[in-house]
């Protein structure tokens, strides 16, 4: 079931279009990457989902109903620009935000204590925010975002400002929240983290949705039939033998201790044939398709070079 559905949403500001007929739906329990270059319209879209602004056209559905004011209790939002009251104490501040999200003081205190223990920051309760380092404040901010146990979490660049250890801690927490039933919208520029944790993505460029789908599916779909063969034997011999069968690609081969070649095979039907041919020439140690990284796909999509891309 889809927890969130964005239908033909458009938003125009004086002078420019922030979103142009954007549609996608987010399956319950997924980690959904919302990608796009700077200024593509991601923040506007997030604000519309958060009900901070309203779309000019289109609708947003949450849990099968059109989104309503009280739905903000079901959403947790971690904005890219982190902000806390600098002069306020950490505990009081976390309580304040939790109460604004509809928790009672007692319940909020209980949950906060749990989270503080989990993150090993029990000693910070009475510290002022201005005494915390950036990473420390980020942790507090994350706790504030998830404390009311929202069904839908919107995290805008959640890992920025964290060291690898804390980033990993955060990743584990996000995955755990997902396992407990939360759905996560994950907005980022960091493509390797998308590959790591997202199962679906939508790529927005110049206010349009240009690519949506499952991550694995997209990566396979956009594989260009490029294969790497590692082998024992004479490289030049194979090279000349392959002439006419497949295109040899120049460029560095990926990690291998064997001789290796990157080749492009024009159609899938030919793959078995080519393998047989290579097998006659050299001793194959490995043969695999090179699947494009999300980073490649992102760059190609934004440049407008994807084969099956929607019209821009």
């Amino acid at each position: 079931m889809d927890i969130l559905k964005v239908e033909h949403v458009s938003k125009r500001y004086a002078g420019h279009t922030a979103l142009d007929d954007v549609s996608f739906s987010i399956p319950q329990g997924s980690i959904y990457g919302l990608l796009g270059p700077n200024g593509a319209g991601k923040t506007t879209l997030i604000r519309i989902i958060n009900r901070i602004t309203a779309p000019d056209q289109g609708k947003v559905w949450l849990d099968g109903r059109e989104i309503a004011p009280e739905d903000i209790y079901k959403i947790g939002y971690l904005p890219e620009e982190r902000g806390l009251y600098k002069k306020m104490r950490v505990g009081e501040q976390a309580l304040y935000f939790a109460m604004l999200k509809g928790l009672s003081r007692r319940e909020a205190t209980r949950r906060l204590k749990e989270w503080f223990v989990k993150f090993g920051i029990q000693g910070w309760w009475n510290k002022k925010v201005e005494e915390l380092s950036k990473g420390m404040a980020q942790k507090v901010q994350f706790i504030v975002t998830v404390l009311h146990e929202p069904k839908l979490l919107i995290l805008d660049e959640p890992f920025s400002g964290f060291d690898p250890i804390n980033a990993n801690l955060l990743k584990e927490e996000i995955l755990q929240l997902r396992d407990k039933g939360a759905t996560v919208i994950f907005s980022t520029h960091n493509m390797s983290s998308v590959e790591e944790i997202c199962d679906h993505i939508t790529l927005i460029n110049r206010s349009k949705n240009i690519l949506s789908g499952e991550v694995n599916d997209i990566r396979h779909r956009h594989g260009n039939n490029i294969f790497q063969v590692d082998f024992r034997g004479d490289r030049e011999k194979l090279r000349s033998a392959l002439e006419g069968q497949a295109m040899i690609l120049e460029g560095s081969e990926e990690d291998t201790i064997y001789n290796s070649l990157k080749i492009h095979i024009p159609s899938n039907a030919q793959v078995r044939e080519v393998i047989g041919f290579i097998n006659d020439q050299v001793e194959i140690r490995s043969f695999r398709e090179i699947i494009p990284s999300m980073n490649d796909i992102f760059i190609r999509a934004v440049a407008g070079n994807l084969a099956d891309q929607k019209e821009q």
């Binding site: 903000i72 959403i75 939002y77 902000g83 806390l84 009251y85 604004l100 504030v144």
Partner: peptide
């Protein structure tokens, strides 16, 4: 102060 410290970004998602 709320605007420059970006607290508003969080606030407006709850109020």
């Amino acid at each position: 102060e709320e605007k420059s410290s970006k607290v508003l970004e969080i606030m407006v998602s709850s109020v």
